[in-house]
């Protein structure tokens, strides 16, 4: 591994984040041209960083380095610009707040977001995979990958929607369609 290349790639990523921050600042002043040019510069820098990572570690690793190294560089930039505002106000606290819903409602959400959403997500994922992918191995790997996303999304929808019936009906409809199609 060439450490210099690695460091250059990181520097490029840091500059990308700085460009975005400056572009955002300018946005408040409505300086669109300068803002757009910063975005273009950031794209070029990002591409150069990718090339540097790629030269060093190969294409597969380079993608993940690009995605993961952004985080800590942005956090460092954020921390360097942050200020601590000391406050001596005392906050009045309460011991409890009124519960939004009873335990029956909460248990029903748990049931819907758990086994019901899991079952539906598997069928929906399988249906999508079979619809778009021809090869058996790819079909199943896509099923394994999209199933957790669909499950998580359905579970959150069940927990989010005030009208419990809406997500339930749509989920059941989708499940029935997928089941029918798969059979």
């Amino acid at each position: 591994m060439n450490i210099l290349m690695y460091l250059l790639a990181l520097l490029g990523l840091l500059l990308v984040v700085i460009c975005w921050q400056q572009a955002q600042k300018l946005g408040r002043q409505q300086r669109t041209t300068l803002r757009l040019s910063l975005v273009v510069v950031s794209l070029i820098l990002g591409w150069l960083s990718f090339i540097a990572f790629q030269e060093n570690e190969g294409t597969e690793f380079a993608w993940f380095f690009m995605l993961f190294h952004f985080s800590w560089l942005a956090w460092i930039l954020l921390a360097s610009k942050a200020h601590v505002k000391f406050n001596d106000k005392t906050v009045k606290t309460v011991k409890s707040v009124a519960a939004e819903h009873n335990w029956l409602y909460k248990s029903s959400i748990l049931l819907l977001a758990g086994p019901v959403a899991l079952f539906s997500s598997i069928l929906i994922a399988l249906c999508i995979s079979k619809l778009f992918i021809a090869e058996l191995a790819n079909q199943w790997v896509l099923t394994f990958i999209i199933m957790p996303i669909i499950w998580g999304a359905l579970a959150t929808w069940f927990a989010a929607d005030e009208k419990r019936l809406r997500p339930l009906l749509i989920t059941l409809l989708l499940t029935a369609v997928c089941y029918g199609w798969l059979l």
Binding site: S121, M147, P148, W151, G152, A153, L154, A155, T156
Partner: peptide, 14 residues
């Protein structure tokens, strides 16, 4: 644990 991974995906979307 797998289910918690799926729930985290849901948490990210929401």
């Amino acid at each position: 644990v797998g289910m918690l991974g799926a729930m985290m995906c849901g948490l990210m979307i929401s």
